[in-house]
């Protein structure tokens, strides 16, 4: 395999890798309120060191779509902000397309697009076209190229009737789509999308996903997105899960489902549900008079005892399926909570 060398930092990278994160740590000092009762105690604040990112290492391949998942406060946005050069890591190293983000922020900004969900780039009182024109000047995009790209994105995201309206009169979904356009106009090599579908309706979500897939296919753009919305992950070919600043999973969606969701979901339709000892076979997810939903181990599906139940005359239908990704993730997050309780 071909390797290239970053002479500035002495780091060797695989030529297929566009982002390399190497043992990165980031700590914050935060004020915590005093839990003691009393008037004066309510003014006292305790300084606490919070480790937002703990020793994370990862590689992101060129042209991939990577979903960065984790609960609120898990360190996702901090990690993205370090990759984009907004924050300095306390230790460790990040290399994005051969550049150190915190030292070469301006150079890197020319190669990347960023949509920060809560902090849009659009000027609130001006039409989105003013921001787009500003982007054209800032990234020195040739006039003809700009017109071509703008036309393409406006069509793809159904923004033709919207982009000349002041941003403050736009819906949240329209604002998100315009923010996406603003971050894509200079054809960036890497795009960071921090919760890009907050408050976006279903057609707009589909349009955004379509635009991401098109950009990846036609331009080879790499996307790194953080999200809480399971449907957004569908387009990702790689998933990274972090919890309390630690990387807990790094692999494909299939692998995630395999490790955390190898159990199967069995829907059982019977005239006599009450007489079956469901808990003996697996975890009961839901139950009505004639239907039960169970989570069972794969080995259970092969056991004679369970097959006997499925084939009994009272059971008139059954269905076996793989758990949905949302179920896998909620199970994964619950396991984090339990681990947190155990660790105190």
């Amino acid at each position: 395999m071909f390797f290239w060398h970053n002479y500035n930092e002495g780091i060797t990278m695989d030529s297929n890798v566009i982002i390399k994160v190497d043992r990165v740590m980031k700590k914050y000092k935060v004020s915590e309120s005093n839990s003691k009762k009393g008037f004066f105690n309510s003014f006292k604040r305790k300084k606490v060191i919070k480790v937002a990112v703990k020793n994370i290492s990862l590689n992101i391949k060129k042209g991939s779509i990577v979903a960065l998942l984790g609960k609120n406060g898990s360190g996702k946005s901090t990690l993205i902000k370090m990759m984009t050069g907004i924050l300095y890591p306390d230790s460790g190293q990040i290399i994005v397309d051969g550049l150190l983000p915190y030292n070469d922020r301006k150079k890197l900004a020319l190669k990347m697009g960023v949509v920060l969900g809560a902090h849009g780039q659009l000027y609130w009182n001006l039409p989105a076209i003013d921001t787009f024109n500003f982007m054209r000047s800032m990234y020195k995009i040739p006039e003809k190229e700009f017109e071509k790209r703008l036309k393409l994105y406006l069509k793809m995201l159904s923004l033709k009737d919207v982009y000349k309206k002041p941003v403050r009169t736009m819906s949240l979904g329209e604002q998100m789509k315009c923010n996406f356009v603003a971050s894509m106009l200079h054809n960036p090599k890497i795009v960071f999308l921090d919760e890009p579908t907050i408050g976006v309706d279903l057609p707009s979500k589909s349009a955004l996903k379509e635009a991401i897939l098109t950009a990846r296919e036609k331009l080879g753009t790499t996307f790194l997105l953080t999200t809480h919305i399971v449907e957004d992950i569908e387009i990702a070919d790689h998933v990274i899960v972090i919890n309390k600043g630690r990387k807990e999973f790094d692999g494909t969606k299939k692998k995630l489902e395999h490790i955390f969701g190898d159990n199967r979901i069995v829907e059982l339709y019977s005239t006599n549900i009450a007489q079956i000892n469901l808990m003996h076979y697996g975890r009961v997810i839901s139950k009505t008079n004639n239907m039960a939903k169970l989570e069972v181990r794969p080995s259970m599906l092969k056991s004679k005892e369970f097959l006997k139940i499925l084939n009994s005359k009272h059971v008139f239908d059954y269905r076996v399926s793989e758990p949905h990704l949302s179920y896998v993730l909620s199970k994964l997050y619950k396991s984090f909570d339990k681990k947190g309780e155990r660790d105190g």
């Binding site: 902000k81 984009t84 050069g85 907004i86 922020r105 301006k106 150079k107 900004a109 020319l110 990347m112 960023v114 920060l116 809560a118 902090h119 849009g120 780039q121 800032m138 990234y139």
Partner: peptide, 11 residues
């Protein structure tokens, strides 16, 4: 935290 949207620009 709005500083983030300025720091992602090449200026």
């Amino acid at each position: 935290g709005n500083i983030a949207k300025s720091l992602i620009k090449p200026v």
